[in-house]
C-alpha cells in the first residue's frame, strides 16, 4: 500500500518535496507516527476532509514539529511502544532552520528517538517564495530580490548539518531527490539507529526556483554534481561518508536552469562566489 496517497495531494506538478515525503513515509513503513510542521507539505497533503497520509500524522504549528514529536515519543515510551513504532518529525527549511530551530535543538539535545526530516526547498514557498535561512547565496526570492543595489540573497545557506552534528547525535545526513536510491538508504539507516537523527533532503521546487516541472530530478542531481549540495553523513559529529563527485560540473549548469539565479549569469563576480562555495564544499568534505 502506498502510505502517501497522492490522490489526496494538491502539490504542484514536479514538487520535489512531495516526492521526498512520499519516499520517506513509504521507506519507513506503517509503524510510524509523523509530526508535520506548517508549510507546503502540510497544506497540500491534509486539506479537510482529505488526507494523503495513511499513517498516523499530526500537524500542530509551524515551529513545533520537533517538540510535538518529543511528546509523541515520550508518550510511546510511557506506553512501552517505542520499540515498535518510529517517530518522524518533518518540516520545510523554514520550519527547521529558522522558526523551528530552537525546538529542533531541544529535541536533539534531549536525545529523543526521533528522525527529523528537513525538506529543504530553500525558501518559504508556501507563503510565496520568501527567503529563509537555507536560501542559497544570491537566490532571487520575493524578499531577497535582486535590484540596482542587490544581487539577491545576501547570505549563504545556514550550515544546518554541522549545527545538528555539533549536538553530537548518532546520525546526521544530507540527501536529495536527485539521488533516490541514496535517499532511501539513508532513511533506512537512520531508522535503524536509536536516538535523534537529522536528515536534510534537497527538494527542488519548480514554482519557487523557476524551472519546468519535469526537470526536478535533473535540477536536484546537478546541485549535488556541482558540489553545491554535498551528500554527506555524520555520526557523532564526525564526517563518516560522502557521495563522491569525481568530476564536478560547473555551477553554471545548475544555475542556468533556474529563474532564481537568472540575474547572475552575466555577473562574473557573483558567479565566482558561488563557484567558491562549491570548491569549499569539495575541499572540506573531500567530494572528489
Amino acid at each position: 500500500m502506498n502510505l502517501f496517497d497522492s490522490k489526496f495531494s494538491t502539490a504542484c506538478p514536479g514538487c520535489g518535496q512531495e516526492i521526498a515525503a512520499s519516499i520517506v513515509v513509504n521507506t519507513a513503513g506503517e509503524n510510524v507516527i509523523i509530526t508535520n510542521a506548517t508549510g507546503c507539505l502540510e497544506v497540500f497533503s491534509s486539506k479537510f476532509p482529505d488526507s494523503a497520509w495513511k499513517v498516523p500524522w499530526i500537524h500542530s504549528l509551524f515551529e513545533n514539529a520537533a517538540a510535538v514529536a518529543s511528546g509523541v515519543e515520550a508518550a510511546l515510551k510511557h506506553l512501552g511502544k517505542l520499540e515498535n513504532i518510529r517517530v518522524i518529525a518533518q518540516a520545510g527549511d523554514g520550519g527547521t532552520a529558522d522558526i523551528g530551530l530552537q525546538a529542533l535543538s531541544g529535541m536533539l539535545e534531549r536525545g529523543h528517538d526521533i528522525l527529523f526530516c528537513c525538506y529543504d526547498n530553500e525558501a518559504y514557498e508556501n507563503t510565496g517564495i520568501q527567503r529563509s535561512g537555507l536560501t542559497p547565496l544570491d537566490a532571487n526570492t520575493t524578499t531577497s530580490p535582486p535590484g540596482k543595489k542587490s544581487t539577491g540573497n545576501i547570505r549563504p545557506k545556514k550550515t544546518m548539518l554541522e549545527i545538528c552534528a555539533a549536538h553530537k547525535i548518532p546520525y546526521v545526513a544530507s540527501a536529495s531527490v536527485g539521488f533516490i536510491p541514496d535517499l532511501k538508504e539513508k532513511i533506512k539507516k537512520a531508522l535503524t539507529i536509536r536516538g535523534p537523527k537529522y536528515l536534510q533532503i534537497h527538494c527542488p521546487c519548480p514554482l519557487g526556483w523557476g524551472y519546468a516541472p519535469e526537470l526536478t530530478l535533473k535540477v536536484g542531481k546537478l546541485a549535488v554534481e556541482t558540489g553545491l549540495y554535498p551528500l554527506i553523513e555524520f555520526e557523532y559529529d564526525k564526517l563518516t561518508s560522502v557521495m563522491k563527485i569525481p568530476e564536478p560540473k560547473p555551477v553554471e549548469e545548475y544555475l542556468k536552469l533556474q529563474k532564481r539565479f537568472k540575474h547572475l549569469l552575466n555577473n562574473k563576480q557573483e558567479l565566482q562566489k558561488i563557484e567558491q562555495i562549491a570548491k569549499t564544499n569539495i575541499k572540506n568534505f573531500g567530494l572528489t
Binding site: 508535520n36 479537510f48 498516523p56
Partner: peptide, 8 residues
C-alpha cells in the same frame, strides 16, 4: 488505526 490530526 491511522488518523490525520490537524487538518487544514
Amino acid at each position: 488505526h491511522p488518523i490525520t490530526m490537524g487538518y487544514l
